[in-house]
Each structure stands twice: as C-alpha cells, then as structure tokens.
Simulated assay, not measured.
Amino acid sequence: MTLFVVIAVLAVLGAVAVLAALEHRTWLTRREARRRETANRLRPSALALIDGEDPQVPTLSGPDTLVFADLLVHYSRGLRGEADDRISGYFESTGAVDRELRHLHGVRERSRVEAAFGLGDLGSSRAVPELVRALDDRSADVRAAATRSLGRLGATTAVQQVIAASVALRVPRAVAGAALLEIGPQAVPSLLELLGHEDPHFRADAAELIGLLGAANDADALPSRLRDGSPEVRAATAAALGRLGSGTARDELVATLQDRVPYVRASAARALGQIGGRTATAALLEVARHDEFDPASEAARALARIDPALVLRAAEEPDSGPHLLEAADRLRL
C-alpha cells in the first residue's frame, strides 16, 4: 500500500512538472511573439533615425524601450560614420550611456561585464576613458569586454593601453589584436610611435600591426627595426615589410638572411618571396641549399614564387637539398 502511494505521488508530481514546463514554454513563446510584434512596429522609426530623417519616435516605456534599443544596437554593429553618430546621439540623449557607465563601476561582476560590452555598441566616445580604466578591472571578462568595445568605438587614443594590456597578459592577445584591427588604419600613427618603445614586446606588436593595417608609405619607418636588439622585433618587422610589399627594403631583407636567429632568417626569406624581384635569388638559393630547416624551407618557397624556372634547374643539381627538391615537385604538380 505504501509503495502504491509513493508511485501515485510521484506520478502526480511528474504531471505537475510537465504542465509547469509546458506553461513556461507557452509563456516564452508568447513573450517572443510580443517582442517580434513590437520590433516590427518600431523598426521604421529606428531606420528613419539611422537614415537621418526626422523620425517620429513614440514615447517609449518598459519593454518597448528595450526593444528599440536592441534594434539600434543590431544596426549599429554594421555602421560607421554619420549613421553611427546618430545612434550614439540617441543613446546619449536617453541616458543609456550614463546608465551603462554607472554599471561599469558597479559591485556585481556580471553588471560590469555587460556594461563594458554594451558601451561599444552604444557608440559614444564619452565611454572611451572609462573603458580604458576598465582594462585594469579585477575581472578578466570585464577587461576583455572593455577591449572589444574600445575596438568597436575606434578608440585611437587607446592603442597603447590595449597593447599594454596584452603584453601584461591582462587581456588575451587574440582579443587585443581583434580590437586593434577593428580600429583599423587610424591606429597606424600610434603604432609608428610605439616602434621606439623601450619594451621589445611593444615594438614587435607595433611592427606586426603596421604590416596588417599600414599602407606602402608606412613601410619607410620599418627597415631600421631589422637591426633591433630583439629577434622578435626583427622577425615581426621582416613580416610587416613583406606584407606591405616594400621593394625599397629588399637589400636590408637580403642582409637579414644572415641573422643569427633562424626564425628571423625564415621571416626575411618569406618577406622576400612576397616582395619579389630577382636581385634576391642568389642569397635565397644559398639559404635554401644550406640553412636550417625553417629558413631553408621558406627560402625555397620564396624562390618558387620569384623564379620558378630557377628552382626547377637548381633541383637538378647535386647539392640542391631537400627543400629545393620539394619546391620543384610542387611546381610540377
């Protein structure tokens, strides 16, 4: 009898749980439907604001305010220029920026993370100084979110601080790099200044990013760093010169093939392959035949790009070595 009662009670509890789950799911479905309806109703006003028209934004309250803000945030992620300025102006006028700035200094970590992330989407440059301070937050998630938002805001004044946070391992290198890439070419002047920084990690990061974001005329500041005391800086500089296609640095890159550090020689060989020009073939041929694995491999690949016929001839010689043979085999495919 007791077992019967237990089974009956469990059956009732199970049925109640199922009904509760169904009721919750129905409530969520209705809420999402109401949200979609509200978004459809407010979307014309959001688009009018973005397009610079004079939108008749209705007086909003409660859920409507959040839905309208979400629409603007969604569109802001793909915008720059005047449209982005209009969105940030709206958020400033409604007090949203000030509210998120207060949350950025709150006690709860989750609130700080959400504020650090959200301020990038609100688009207000007033948030930049506080986001820079947040790079020293005790929470790694807050620091990462602040870094992302500085990139989203195009904060050229924060370039050095973002690199500093990456060098000090306060922010993952990938997160800092993504933010700096989002800032874009406007970051290059600050990066050029950092080539003279006392810390070689700053110089190496600056050289690498100049190669990714810079233009051909930005390469003029780089060749002297091929003689930097840090091999990381020399390797990053060679890579940047290759990406920028700096033909004027070809002779200095050829000299760098004699660097004492193998990965620097490999970087110089790769860069010469990207730049092209047959004046470097003799030096590359020597490296491909006799150097260590990485420099020799990169030199053979560079030669295959610059002068394929030379690689095919060299592969037939007794002292060609495995890397020229491999490069020739690839050319024959």
Rank of each mutant, 00 (worst) to 15 (best):
H74D: 15
E100G: 00
L180E: 07
G106Y: 05
V171M: 11
G177P: 01
T65C: 03
A174G: 08
E130Y: 05
L131E: 02
D121T: 02
F68Q: 05
E109S: 02
P129R: 04
G123V: 03
L119G: 03
Q161D: 15
R143D: 06
R152F: 01
V159H: 01
G154D: 08
A134R: 00
G89K: 12
L119D: 01
A127R: 07
V132M: 13
R126K: 15
A146Q: 02
D121Y: 12
A115C: 00
E82W: 08
R80P: 06
E82P: 13
R77M: 14
D84R: 15
A178K: 15
E109F: 00
R110M: 11
G154P: 03
A174L: 14
A134G: 02
V113Q: 03
D64F: 07
L180N: 11
A146M: 03
L72E: 13
A69R: 15
E114N: 04
L72G: 14
A165K: 12
T65A: 08
R102E: 10
E114S: 04
H103N: 01
R99A: 06
L150R: 00
A165I: 06
A176P: 09
G123C: 09
A174N: 13
V142G: 00
R138W: 03
V167R: 11
F91S: 07
S125T: 05
L169H: 15
T157C: 08
G123T: 05
A179E: 13
A176L: 10
G118L: 01
D64C: 00
V162F: 07
V167N: 08
A83D: 12
R86G: 13
D84C: 06
R102L: 06
G81V: 10
G154V: 09
T156F: 05
R170G: 15
L153W: 02
D64L: 04
R102S: 07
S111K: 07
D121H: 11
A127N: 06
S93R: 13
T94Q: 06
V132Y: 02
G154N: 03
R108D: 13
Y90T: 05
S111R: 09
D141N: 07
S166Q: 13
S124E: 03
G123Q: 03
L169D: 15
G81R: 12
H74P: 03
G95N: 04
A174W: 09
A176V: 12
A115V: 00
L119W: 02
D85W: 01
L180H: 08
D85E: 15
D64Q: 11
S88L: 06
Y90M: 12
G78A: 11
D141G: 03
D121W: 10
S61R: 14
